[in-house]
Design a protein around this nucleic acid. Structure first.
Lengths: 209, 209, 209, 209
DNA sequence: AATGAATGAGGTTTCATTCAT
DNA sequence: CATGAATGAAACCTCATTCAT
């Protein structure tokens, strides 16, 4: 029946909305307190639902972090795809990515992403449950590498530096560790930091004239 | 009595050796499993002593991590002091530091240090018990900044890039996140990675000719 | 909805019943084994629930004893208020109180109360968490003093003995130490003991004729 | 050999002195902190010896309390014997005992004695290891009873009140619970309290004229 | 479908006791 | 003898997960 269909899809929509909400709240709490210091109770009560309800959406706490990680990675990939489609120079695209990670909408999530990716605790977690996550991260690395290769081909970047090391260095910059400290000093706005950091990197890899 | 004195110092020496051993083992386990996934039981049994014995050396689990962190930071500072005394160029000194962190004796510890320093969990830990640790890290940052300033003064480094951002970027490179991946690929030995990474950084900050 | 309301209150009722049960069992075990010799596991398993469930009702072991103490003190106070309302003589009222403590429903609890109130361990406990408990005990003492004063005013009791010492002596009688021994001898029923003890006390404080 | 004998007895004397010291210190600490809150470490370090040395004198913590209790009881018994030998009236002898317990040299120990004797923890302790202690206490009670009987025979005390209840009531007065409160009020010196308390008791049991 | 009370494994920490030195 | 480092049992408490309602 149509009404049932509508009903079903309405429920489904609500379900997805709540799932989104859980992810968002969980992200915030994980970021504030850290993974282990955050209890499922805290997440549930901040969302405004019962603890058991969280388990209707995610089989366990692990899966919750993995889901967050996955969602963010997907979003980064989307953004990167958008960048790839841009007709701008490789450097401009990577600068856009940096900006997206730090100064753009993603700035907050970048911290959690980094915090999750580091920390030995979660390495094991990913090994067990999140096999696909390794792939996601690989794909991000591949896209960066791809852009860098393109830049090399165009004669923009130094071909004597292995692309994989360039990639690795670039990704290292996406590390909110010292970024926070810089912001805390209060001398810079995010845009400045991204600009200067990018400048160092791109001058570092630019083809010798 | 001399014999008593000797006796005393022997005991003391054994004590310190054991303490060292605990720190070393704890470091390994924390690195493998992460802070929360590691139990005091695990550490003790790996050292080959009883759980209670660990508590004779460190008042709690927290203090154990803090002790590890502190010891490593002190060692880094020592190394940096040694670098500062070198009569080599600023760049050479920073390169030596990078090498020490990644390719040298410190390579393994760097990972834990980074893993500890990230992760929201421990931020709070440090706020409570390890007030001095923040200082230690600050001191490392200051030494790096100092060398960078010196390089600027000598006309080696670009004076249009703020020193704090240079420092921050340099410290970002000390981040074993992607380093591990590079090693895993198997194409490079640590020395290569350090060399190339340094190259990118120093070309990035070098004074325009 | 009414059903929801009923539901809620049913749950709440069950909750309170369980809480009562925990208190009752805990009281027994504390009485048998003493505070420190009693583990939360023991209490839980005697109630027939899991250890964690006890913590849903009481935040800690301390709070459990305090809750027991508080509940009993409140009941004593209620009883004393009832006594105060009686139109009988001061002596009759105090005799009723003695009877309530030893021979009445409260006989069992009196022991724990006394056992808790003594013992250096718990003095410190009360200082920390049970600030209000000191007050409760003080209030009991005050009521007794009040009745004694009234008796003095009526010319029943000896005005040359300070009320505070009378009070103190009276409360000393509420001390199951030797009471147990008397019962164990088997020559007396509680009523006898209370009667004779009261007789000694009241003759001891009666106004000289 | 004589010298060996002397040596032996000297050592033995030192041993006993230390044992006394341990008992005295342990008594203080138990009184301050309570049995369970006191660690063997605390006792040993206050005495100024090593923890292991305490175990050369007492097989365990339990035995330490029992020894304290036993020693005190013996002392009380001695005092009572001294009282019994006095040619004063039964009442005077009991008053002397009360004074000894509260206002005399024994005042401090009385608290621990009471604190030990109450508290369920130790009831079990005595049942296991200190079978003889029950006897000691019984003997004290018997002496009191004996004096009371004598008083009855002389026509001093009321023969309608069972001696065992008189005894029990008398012993109840030896209960520092409320005594402390009285002292804390600051209105009385120990002598006053003992005097008034005794007055109540003896008037309570005196033979009707 | 949502709830949240109940569970119990697992972690940290203490401390009485032992025993090699 | 005296020592005190080492032990390990046992306690308290947390919290991810389940399941009856």
């Amino acid at each position: 029946m149509a009404s049932s269909q509508v009903h079903r899809s309405l429920k489904e929509k609500q379900r997805q909305e709540r799932e989104e909400l859980i992810l968002k709240v969980a992200q915030d709490v994980f970021l504030e307190r850290g993974y282990h210091e955050t209890s499922m109770d805290e997440i549930a009560s901040r969302v405004g639902i019962a603890k058991g309800t969280v388990y209707l959406h995610f089989p366990g706490k692990d899966d919750l972090v993995i889901a967050i990680f996955e969602r963010d990675m997907q979003e980064i990939l989307s953004q990167m795809d958008a960048c790839l489609d841009c007709q701008t120079s490789p450097q401009a695209r990577l600068e856009a990515l940096l900006h997206f990670m730090y100064a753009g909408l993603f700035s907050k999530r970048t911290q959690l992403l980094s915090s999750i990716y580091h920390s030995a605790d979660r390495q094991r977690l990913f090994a067990e449950k999140g096999g696909c996550l390794r792939d996601l991260w690989e794909r991000v690395a591949q896209r960066v590498a791809q852009i860098l290769e393109e830049g090399k081909a165009r004669g923009d970047f130094d071909t004597t530096i292995p692309t994989s090391i360039m990639t690795s260095t670039f990704l290292s910059l996406i590390s909110p560790k010292s970024y926070e400290r810089l912001l805390a000093e209060g001398q810079f706005v995010p845009e400045d930091i991204v600009a200067h950091t990018g400048k160092i990197f791109f001058r570092g890899i630019q083809a010798k004239s």
